[in-house]
């Protein structure tokens, strides 16, 4: 049996918002150590990976591993019906065909229970090896969101170049070109670790979608390495993360 309680529905709302633009159906795997989810988008260009350790929850119990096939649009509708301040408890039996979501208001005067039908999903899981990234950049997540938004006005393709001097985002299109450079700051809000310089091209549409996770974390980590997908990571309250992987564009 699974029983997992979050103190605030707001966190679940943010997580669902960060997932639902990339994937519509996905399996949430629950075990005694927490919850994991991994799915590629329909066009196999990006992958999202969610991890919530038990520390994310006020209460967590999972006696036996259980996989919950979720329709994220349906889950989104349910969490929208709750107030962000409500607590939410997710419950499922060992061989569940439905997920129970119980919301309780702050003063416990209002409770709302929803049953969500679960799906049997046959999804590929990919083994992502530990990667020694050539460049790791950390910056305010709002800054990254702003850059991705601004770049997408100019081109579908965003070129990211990273050197010891800084990280540069470039887009070139019919309108003209855009270049935004960020250097490391002494106060530490932008850090840039470079083992070797790198330049790669990515689909701006996907980068923009990743920034739906901005409300989850003040900071974002961007990791690049030759010949491997880009990693964009948002941490979740010290006990979890949402990671997006994006295959680079390559010259024919």
């Amino acid at each position: 049996m699974l029983e997992a309680r979050l103190g605030e529905t707001q966190l679940l709302k943010k997580i669902v918002d960060a997932l639902k633009e990339i994937i519509s159906l996905s399996t949430l795997d629950c075990s005694e150590t927490g919850m994991q989810l991994q799915s590629m988008d329909n066009s196999h260009v990006s992958l999202v990976s969610l991890s919530l350790q038990t520390g994310c929850f006020e209460k967590y119990r999972c006696d036996r591993n259980v996989s919950l096939g979720l329709d994220l649009k349906s889950l989104s509708k349910v969490v929208k019906s709750a107030s962000g301040d409500d607590s939410v408890t997710l419950s499922a039996a060992d061989k569940a065909d439905k997920l129970l979501l119980s919301f309780e208001s702050d003063n416990k005067s209002r409770t709302a229970d929803y049953e969500l039908k679960l799906l049997n999903l046959d999804q590929d899981h990919l083994g992502i090896p530990d990667t020694n990234y050539a460049c790791t950049v950390q910056m305010p997540s709002s800054e990254f969101a702003r850059i991705c938004r601004d770049m997408s006005m100019f081109s579908e393709t965003v070129v990211i170049s990273c050197t010891k001097q800084g990280i540069k985002f470039s887009a070139n299109g019919d309108l003209g070109s855009a270049n935004i450079k960020l250097a490391e700051t002494s106060k530490g809000d932008i850090t840039i670790d470079v083992e070797e310089p790198i330049t790669q091209s990515f689909a701006g549409r996907y980068l923009n979608t990743f920034t739906r996770a901005t409300p989850l974390s003040d900071r974002v980590k961007i990791c690049l390495a030759p010949e491997v997908p880009l990693l964009v990571e948002y941490s979740i309250e010290d006990y979890g993360y949402i990671r997006y992987y994006l295959a680079p564009k390559v010259d024919d």
């Binding site: 260009v45 990006s46 590929d124 899981h125 992502i128 689909a203």
Partner: peptide, 14 residues
């Protein structure tokens, strides 16, 4: 325009 790679080509299916 550069081509878009398939992400699954980078990782092994489990």
């Amino acid at each position: 325009e550069p081509l878009q790679n398939d992400l699954a080509e980078y990782y092994d299916k489990l």
